[in-house]
Amino acid sequence: MIPRPPTSRPEWRLPGRSVNWEPWLAPVGVALLLLMLPFVFGLGREGGMELANFEPLFRLSTLQFLAFGLVWTVSVALVAILVSLPLATLFALGRLSGRGFIRWPSIAYIEGIRSLPVLLLIFYMFFRLGSGQLPFVSKDALAVIIALTLYTAAVNAEVIRAGIVSLPKGQFEAAQALGMTYPRMMQSVILPQSFRRVLPTLIAQFTTVVKDTSLGAIIGTVELAQRGRIVFQGFRNPLETYFVVAIMYFVVNFILGRISLRIQRRRKTTPLPREVQEKLFADEMG
C-alpha cells in the first residue's frame, strides 16, 4: 500500500479518490468576507447601511428589474469574450509571423487599440454605427460588444503571444521534425500548451470584460450598474443597492472562473495508468 503523496500536484492525484475541496476554499472565504462587508460599512450605524433598506431590494419586481440588467450584462460580455478569443489568437500569431505585411498590421492594431480607454472606444463605436435601426440587436448593445471585443482581442493577443513564446524551443523543433505543417503544428502542439499556460491571465481579462460592460452607461445602455442607480433613486438606499449589485457581479465572475477551471482540467492530458503512477511515485520517493 502506497501512502497518498503529500503534494497536490495534479499528476500525483490518483484517480477515483475523494473530492478535492481545495479550489472551493477561496470562494467560500470571499463569500464570508462579502457577508461581513455590510458591518464594516457600518450596518446599523448612523449614515451606514440599514437592514430595513434591504427590504425593497428583495421584492420580486425589483429583483426582476435588476435581473434584466444582469442578463444584458452577461450576454454582452459572453459574446464579446467568445468573439474576441479567436481574434486574439489570430493577432498573436500575426505578431509572431515572419512576414512583415502580416506582422506590422498586427503590431499596429494591438498597440493602437490596447492604449485607448474602453470608454472612448464605446463612445466612438456608438457614433460610428450611425442613426439607423438594426434588425436584431439594439445599437447601444452592439456598440458595447464591438468595443469590448476589439479591446479584449488586443489585450489577449499579447497574453497568448506570451504563452507561445514561453514554450521551450524543442516543442517547435519536434513538431517540425515530425513533418507537421504550420497550421497543424499550431493547432495540435503549440496553441493547446500555450493556452493552458495563460488561462489564468485570460480569465482575469474576461472578468474585466464583465465589469467593463457597465461603461455602456455613457451611451445610455440600461445595464446592471445603471439599473442599480435607478433603483436607489426610488428607494434612496445607495449603499445597500450597490452592495447587492456588487454581489451579482461577484457571482457572475465567480461562475466564469469555475467554468474556465473546468475547461482547464478537461484539456489536461488524461492521467497515466495507475501502475505507471505508482511506479513514478515510488521512483521519486527513492
Binding site: 450576454s75 459572453l78 440587436v137 445602455t221
Partner: peptide
C-alpha cells in the same frame, strides 16, 4: 451559446 446570447441581447437590449 452564441446564438442564445444573440437572442437574449435582442430581447434585453431593447
Amino acid at each position: 451559446v452564441v446564438l442564445m446570447a444573440a437572442f437574449i441581447i435582442a430581447v434585453t437590449g431593447c
